[in-house]
């Protein structure tokens, strides 16, 4: 009964927690500047695949968790991730039929917007990155998207998540 709501939901949560882990995993200094937005990418995939399971509230709660992990103001990443999921959900009908490279292009814009909001909020709290490098993570994420998409889709079909 593949269509049953709530089948193998633990896979979703596992990948999202993996996303949280990856977003704080230690990295060499020179790569730190382009750390991919893992959580945003995983949320994007599940929002596209299962919009009835993963939505704004999931994104918001995960954002809160990320805030606590990063030591930001509570709500900062929450609002950013909600924005990402909002944009993806409103583009969902189109994004689902796009070829993967075109999805990457759209997501570059979406993540870029999210990073801009992040920049504004960071400026409010007092630490502003000096240059345009704050957009780097969105570029890296967009380039990584095809692989993330393929791996997660494979996971989804293998565990028959719905």
């Amino acid at each position: 009964m593949g269509w049953r709501i709530g089948h193998n939901g633990w896979v979703i949560w596992l990948t999202l927690i993996l996303g949280l882990l990856l977003s704080i995993a230690p990295m060499p200094d020179f790569m730190e500047i382009g750390r991919p937005l893992w959580l945003a990418m995983f949320l994007t995939f599940w929002t596209l695949a299962l919009p009835h399971r993963v939505g704004l509230s999931t994104a918001w709660l995960l954002g809160l968790a990320e805030d606590v992990l990063y030591g930001n103001l509570l709500g900062q990443n929450a609002v950013v991730l909600s924005l990402v999921v909002f944009l993806v959900q409103s583009l969902q009908q189109r994004l689902r039929v796009f070829p993967i490279w075109q999805q990457s292009g759209v997501l570059l814009v979406v993540y870029g917007l999210a990073q801009l909001v992040q920049l504004w909020l960071n400026t409010l709290t007092g630490n502003r990155p000096p240059t345009l490098v704050f957009l780097m993570p969105s570029l890296v994420s967009a380039l990584l998207w095809p692989w993330v998409y393929l791996v997660l889709r494979d996971l989804r079909t293998r565990f028959n998540v719905s």
């Binding site: 509230s57 918001w60 103001l73 509570l74 709500g75 929450a78 924005l83 409103s90």
Partner: peptide, 21 residues
Amino acid sequence: SLGVRLLGLAVLSASLMVVDA
């Protein structure tokens, strides 16, 4: 609708941020 929910969450986040700060 989606927009209303985003607005709600954004307002919630903003108030959380202000209170936290």
